[in-house]
């Protein structure tokens, strides 16, 4: 199985982003997805900067893919999408149907996680338009992915969100601006203060979600590191690791070791824990609520806490 670095979902200062990808050139990843997919107001890097980063990563032997925005609202958003889709150098991950339309019949593309590919019918339609890889929606279970893979067109590559806080929802509204009592158009780019998102807890203290501007993510970190054998069996070809502000390179290396079989699920899980910004979850993979951790439930030494799902 290959390992990819998903698009950076947070808003980091320009120098931090540049340093992150300079480091990534030496990490054991096969593919790097680049570009701003969350909020068009984030301008620390422009397309030309992403292209330059892409050139360096490509020179280091990485497959580079540019991702389009997950929400298109304005004419400016459409122009930005076209600029990415028609960049002429790198493969593109399409995250809405306008982007699919821009790419269809012109260039092979990656069908991104926001295209809602929940069945083989939709996947074969996209394959006919040029999709060569698809990224499963985060909600899909191992079983569901395996079912789709069985009927997938010849040569179609399957990628899953294997590590990171789950991008669960997108809105036209900005919840980070709302928290700061600011309007979206005068948001002061406060996202930049929250390199792993702004934590949201329940009133009884459960870490539940994080706010990432217009995007809402899980607070828990989805991790398939103990499930790699099952992922391979299900037909997964690419494991996506979502960038976080600390330890991403170590997470990538750990996944690489686990994929190669050098370490088993127990060791991988134990070594991953201190690298994570929050507790692990894996419910979606098992067809359960996304927030639960089946791994923890199965391996808990103490009896399970009462009153939790």
């Amino acid at each position: 199985m290959k390992i990819s670095l998903g698009p950076l979902l947070y808003y980091w200062p320009r120098e931090t982003v540049l340093a992150f990808y300079r480091d990534a050139a030496s990490w054991p990843v096969d593919t790097v997805y680049l570009g701003e997919t969350v909020c068009s107001r984030r301008r620390e890097l422009k397309l030309v900067d992403w292209l330059a980063i892409g050139e360096e990563l490509a020179a280091a032997g990485k497959e580079v893919v540019l991702s389009t925005s997950e929400l298109i609202e304005s004419d400016a958003d459409l122009r930005a999408m076209h600029a990415v889709a028609e960049n002429g150098t790198f493969r593109v991950e399409a995250n809405d149907m306008a982007a699919v339309r821009a790419l269809a019949g012109k260039a092979p593309f990656v069908a991104g996680p926001f295209l809602n590919v929940y069945n083989a019918g939709t996947l074969s339609l996209l394959a006919g338009l040029g999709a060569v890889r698809w990224v499963a929606p985060v909600e899909l279970s191992r079983e569901g992915i395996a079912d789709i893979v069985t009927e997938a067109p010849e040569g179609m590559e399957t990628e899953v969100f294997a590590y990171g806080r789950l991008p669960l929802a997108v809105s036209a509204r900005c919840f980070t601006a709302r928290y700061n009592n600011l309007t979206k158009d005068h948001c002061e780019f406060r996202c930049i203060e929250h390199p792993d998102g702004l934590a949201l807890d329940t009133q009884d203290g459960q870490h539940f979600l994080v706010l990432n501007g217009v995007q809402t993510q899980s607070a828990s970190v989805h991790s398939l590191v103990p499930e790699l054998a099952q992922a391979r069996q299900a037909g997964v070809g690419v494991l996506r690791i979502s960038p976080q502000s600390q330890h991403t390179g170590e997470v990538v290396s750990l996944f690489r070791e686990a994929v190669s079989g050098a370490i088993g699920p127990e060791e991988a899980t134990a070594r991953l824990a201190p690298l994570m910004p929050a507790a692990a979850c894996d419910g979606y993979w098992h067809g359960k609520p996304g927030i639960v951790s089946e791994w923890e439930r199965a391996h808990a030494r103490a009896p399970a806490t009462e009153g939790r799902p």
Binding site: E70, L71, F114, N116, L168, S171, P289, G290
Partner: peptide
């Protein structure tokens, strides 16, 4: 509040 068809908050919980 979220874009329809792009919200998995409910299945997360």
């Amino acid at each position: 509040i979220m874009v329809e068809g792009r919200c998995a908050l409910s299945s997360y919980a």
